[in-house]
Amino acid sequence: MLPTSKVVSPPSDDKRWKIVDGLMRRHGHEPCALIEVLHKVQETFGFLTEESLSYVAASLRVPYSKVFGVATFYHFFTMKPPGKHTCVVCTGTACYIKGAPTLLNAVQEVAGIKQGETTKDGNLSLLTARCLGSCGLAPAAVFDGQVSGKMTTEKVKERIHMYLDSEAMAMEARK
C-alpha cells in the first residue's frame, strides 16, 4: 500500500536534510524525481542508508520496495559509507588495453583491499569505473575526485602510500 500523504519528517535533525527537502519541493514531490533525489542524498551524505531510503519513499509517495530497487539497480548509488579518501581506477576499454588491470592489482596489493572495499581504518576506498571518458589519457584514475591521466603503477602506488601513511602518521600523533 502507498504511504498516505501525511507530513513526514526527516530521519534525523541533521540540517543537511534541508538540502534534500528543498530539491524534493522543487520537483513538487513527484515520484519521477526519485533518481534525482537519491543523487542529492548521496551527494549530501556520501552514501544511502535504509533510513534515508524510507524517508525518500514516504516523501515522494513511492513504495519502499521500488526505492530500494532503484537504489540497488544503479551502480552509481552505494549503501556503504565511503572511506576518507577514494581511489577509482578506470577499467574502460582504452584503459584496459593500456594496462588498467596492472594498476588495479598494484593498488589492491599496496592497500590490501579488493575493488569495492574500504580499508579497516576507513581511510581508503577502492572503486572501479566503467569509463570516465578520459580515454585520450588512458590509463586514468580518480583520486579524491581529481582525474589523473597517463598513470603508471609507480605513480598509483605513490598516491596510495601517501593516503595510507598520512593516516598512520595521524594515528601516531594521536598516541
Binding site: 515520484p31 533518481i35 530497487g69 532503484v70 539497480f73 551502480h75 566503467r130
Partner: peptide
C-alpha cells in the same frame, strides 16, 4: 546513475520516469 542499459531508449525512458 551508472547503468549502461539506459542507453537503450525504452530503458532510458524508464529511468527518466524514476524507475529501474
Amino acid at each position: 546513475a551508472g547503468a549502461f542499459v539506459c542507453g537503450e531508449e525504452t530503458a532510458l525512458i524508464a529511468s527518466i520516469e524514476g524507475g529501474r
